[in-house]
Design a protein around this nucleic acid. Structure first.
Length: 322
DNA sequence: AAAGCGGGGTC
DNA sequence: GACCCAGCTTT
């Protein structure tokens, strides 16, 4: 006879007990404020918790509610976002703040975060994972999250080396403790991050190893995905103006590396500028590292074809370039 | 379904 | 050097 009572579901009971005893002490777990929780989830999109903490601390401090962010220029958030990567997240977060800060009559939410999955999914930068995370953690909605951790745990637990998103979602829902959906989801993610790790799982410490179909060979689950392309080789040239200042322009948000600084395409065909090198570091919001060579680039020449063997090389770090 | 976005950790 | 990270958006 099925029952939703916690004690009748040993697996999820074991997990939540482990969580209550071993959960990580994270700053956003001390609030129930939907905005602060949403902020944490956006920051943690493809960003490890250990690195996300410092960004959450300073951004939540500066923008304690959506209206505080909505009333400033997007640039101010981008500055705080420097170094975090995936800068489109910051632009979308600002757009989200602007949107929810509108009056309800104009389609906004009067400066609050809406509490239904459907409404959350309408917001910029909020997809299936983040909507479920905010919905369950801030609003106690009974919905399981599917992230990289949950997918891996589900794959190993069920012995399915390549589970579909829907299958993982159903499994995650079955693991929710009635009345504690947010804790249940965070328990599963903690388990994936701390115990059921990709390369070095600690099965001997896992609270649900008894039911795990993959514990004999955990690294086989989930199956390896297609090999990612190797490191991108950015060979864009950077040119100096006559004063020695790098000529950089900001890319439109719709372009590749949108919103970031790089060499203006027009410079490629500009006469009599100094070729200073190639970009060797990813372009960040307003910081650029380049290998620098001194040399001449004449009009119409592709800078990447200019010989550099005899040129003087050094590394420049350019910060705050406007 | 696949590509693009990123900097840093880990093995 | 390859893989991974509390994913989302666009094509």
């Amino acid at each position: 006879m099925k029952s939703s009572k916690t004690n009748d579901h040993p697996l999820r009971k074991s997990l939540i007990d482990w969580y209550d005893a071993e959960k990580r002490d994270l700053p956003w777990r001390r609030t129930k404020d939907p905005w602060l929780i949403l902020l944490s989830e956006v920051i943690l999109q493809q960003t490890q918790v250990s690195r996300g903490v410092e960004y959450w601390e300073k951004i939540s401090d500066r923008f304690p509610n959506p209206r505080a962010l909505a009333k400033v220029d997007q640039e101010e958030l981008l500055t705080l976002w420097q170094g975090a990567g995936y800068y489109a997240r910051a632009r979308r977060l600002h757009a989200l703040a602007v949107q929810v800060s509108k009056p309800a009559i104009e389609g906004g939410f009067d400066g609050t975060i809406p509490g239904s999955i459907e409404q959350l999914l309408e917001l910029p930068g909020i997809g299936a994972y983040t909507a479920a995370a905010v919905g369950s953690i801030a609003f106690d909605l009974h919905i399981g999250v599917v992230d990289g951790n949950v997918r891996r745990v589900a794959s190993r637990q069920t012995g399915n080396s390549n589970p579909t998103h829907d299958l993982v979602s159903i499994w995650a829902n079955s693991m929710l403790i009635p009345g504690r959906p947010g804790d249940s989801n965070q328990a599963m993610m903690d388990l994936g991050a701390v115990i059921c790790k990709p390369k070095t799982p600690k099965c001997e410490l896992c609270p649900i190893s008894d039911s795990c179909e993959g514990k004999e060979n955990p690294l086989a689950y989930p199956a390896a995905t297609k090999r990612k392309k190797s490191i991108e080789n950015l060979d864009a040239a950077v040119l100096l103006d006559p004063s020695g200042r790098p000529r950089l322009s900001r890319r439109d948000s719709s372009e590749r590396f949108g919103g970031m600084w790089g060499p203006p395409m027009s410079d490629i065909a500009t006469d009599s500028l100094t070729l200073v090198g190639e970009v060797v570091h990813h372009l960040t919001h307003r910081e650029l590292r380049v290998k620098v060579w001194s040399g001449q680039c004449s009009k119409g020449t592709d800078p990447s074809t200019v010989p550099i063997s005899n040129l003087d090389r050094k590394i420049l770090k350019i910060a705050g370039v406007m």
